[in-house]
Design a protein around this nucleic acid. Structure first.
Length: 349
DNA sequence: AATACGGGGCG
DNA sequence: CGCCCAGTATT
C-alpha cells in the first residue's frame, strides 16, 4: 500500500523525531566527537552488532589505536586481537587495509567527500552516509535496519526490505523527512528510536513520539512490518580439532583469509594415529554461525615429552603457544571457550 | 540478485 | 530454535 502523504507531513514527522532525540537520545562515547576516524571505527564495529555487545570493544580499540596512523602501523594480529569475539572478522582486516589506504591515497587525512569515503575498503553506502552526515554535515540518510523497520511501520509500507532496491527506496523516503542541515542527528535519532522504542519485537508504541503519525499503529498492524521475504537456510558443518599439549604448551596454526574466522588462530585438525593412546579426553561442542550449525569435536592430547611436540611443530609449520601467548592472539569464540576451560586460572579475554 | 560472513539476545 | 542486529564484499 502506497502512502499519499505530502512533503510537509514528512517533515513534520522528522521534526517530531528530532525533538524526541534531543531529550531521550542515548549518551554514547562516540556521540561526543565529530572525529571522522572515531565515527568510522564505531560504524564498522556496530555493523550487525548491538551497542551493548560492542561498546567495550570500541573503547579498547580507540584507546589502543587512537588515530589512523596508529592503526595503519599496527600488525594484523594485533588488530584482530582487539576484534576478538566480535565476529565478522573481515571487518577488522578491511579496517586495517583502509587505514593504509588513507595514508597512501589521502596523505593520512581522513577523506571528506562521500565518494572518497565510499572508496575505503569495508565502507559501503550506509557507513559512508553515516560518516558524511555526522562528521561533514552532508544531507544523506544512513539507511540501516532501523530505518527499514521505523519507516515501513510509519507508512505501513510493505516494500520488501530484503530486496536490493530497499536501500534506495527508503533513502528517498527518509530524505523527505529530514530537516535541512540535521542529517547527523536525524540518522542517530532513527537508530535510537529503532533501538529503544520501535523494536523488532514488542515495540513500545504507547511511548513512541511518532505514534500519532504511524499508520501501522493506527491500523493495529505494527507486527506486520517490515515485510521481509528472503529466507536463508542453515547448513551443518563438523570440525575436528586436536588440542595437542605438553605441560601447558600446545599446537596452533593460523587460518587463511577465506571461509570463516579469517586469519584467526586454531588447533590442528586431526590426531595422528600414533598419538591415539595419548588422547585423554574428547569434548563435543555445538556452535551456531549465521548460516551454519557447527559441531566441533576436540581431542585433548597430552604428549609425554616436549621433544615430540617441538618436532611436530617444526615439521608441520605450526606454532607452539602457552596460555599467556594465546591470550595475545585472536581465536574463534568456541575455541576461545575451550581454552578458558583448559586454563581456568588464566583470564583469556 | 543471491549468498556468505560471527556472535549474542530475545520471544 | 528462528529472527534480528549501526552492512559489505563477492559471485
Amino acid at each position: 500500500m502506497k502512502t499519499k502523504k505530502q512533503n510537509a507531513d514528512f517533515l513534520h514527522v522528522g521534526r517530531n523525531l528530532l525533538g524526541w532525540y534531543h531529550i531521550h537520545g542515548r549518551d554514547l562515547p562516540f556521540r561526543k566527537t565529530n572525529d571522522p576516524y572515531k565515527i568510522w571505527i564505531c560504524e564498522i564495529i556496530f555493523q550487525q552488532t548491538r551497542i551493548e555487545q560492542g561498546l567495550n570493544h570500541y573503547n579498547r580499540f580507540i584507546q589502543r589505536f587512537p588515530d589512523v596512523q596508529t592503526l595503519a602501523a599496527a600488525s594484523t594480529d594485533e588488530v584482530l586481537l582487539y576484534w576478538k569475539g566480535l565476529g565478522y572478522y573481515s571487518r577488522a582486516l578491511n579496517l586495517h587495509h583502509a587505514a593504509q589506504q588513507i595514508l597512501t591515497a589521502f596523505q593520512g587525512n581522513f577523506p571528506e567527500k562521500y565518494e572518497d569515503i565510499l572508496s575505503l575498503k569495508g565502507v559501503g553506502k550506509y557507513t559512508a552516509a553515516a560518516i558524511s552526515s555526522i562528521c561533514f554535515g552532508e544531507n544523506i540518510p544512513a539507511v540501516d535496519g532501523n530505518f527499514y523497520r521505523v519507516l515501513s511501520r510509519i507508512f505501513a509500507d510493505d516494500f520488501d526490505i530484503s530486496s536490493s532496491k530497499a536501500f534506495g527506496y527508503f533513502s528517498a523516503l527518509a530524505l523527505q523527512m529530514m530537516p535541512e542541515g540535521e542529517a547527523g542527528h536525524f540518522n542517530e535519532a532513527m537508530m535510537d528510536l529503532g533501538s529503544a522504542i520501535c523494536k523488532p519485537k514488542n515495540p513500545l508504541c504507547e511511548s513512541c513520539p511518532l505514534n500519532d503519525d504511524c499508520l501501522a499503529f493506527q491500523f493495529g498492524k505494527v507486527q506486520d512490518f517490515p515485510v521481509k521475504t528472503k529466507k536463508t537456510k542453515a547448513t551443518d558443518l563438523e570440525l575436528k580439532y586436536s588440542f595437542v599439549e605438553f605441560n601447558g604448551i600446545f599446537l596452533v596454526r593460523q587460518r587463511k583469509e577465506d571461509f570463516i574466522w579469517k586469519k584467526l588462530y586454531e588447533f590442528p585438525e586431526k590426531t595422528p594415529v600414533e598419538w591415539a593412546e595419548f588422547v585423554i579426553n574428547q569434548k563435543r561442542v555445538s556452535h551456531k554461525l549465521t548460516h551454519k550449525n557447527l559441531m566441533i569435536i576436540f581431542d585433548h592430547v597430552k604428549l609425554p615429552s616436549l621433544q615430540i611436540l617441538q618436532k611436530f611443530a617444526a615439521k608441520e609449520g605450526y606454532f607452539l603457544f602457552s596460555a599467556e601467548q594465546a591470550r595475545q592472539k585472536s581465536f574463534p569464540k568456541p575455541l576461545q571457550n575451550f581454552l578458558e576451560s583448559i586454563f581456568p586460572q588464566t583470564e583469556m579475554v
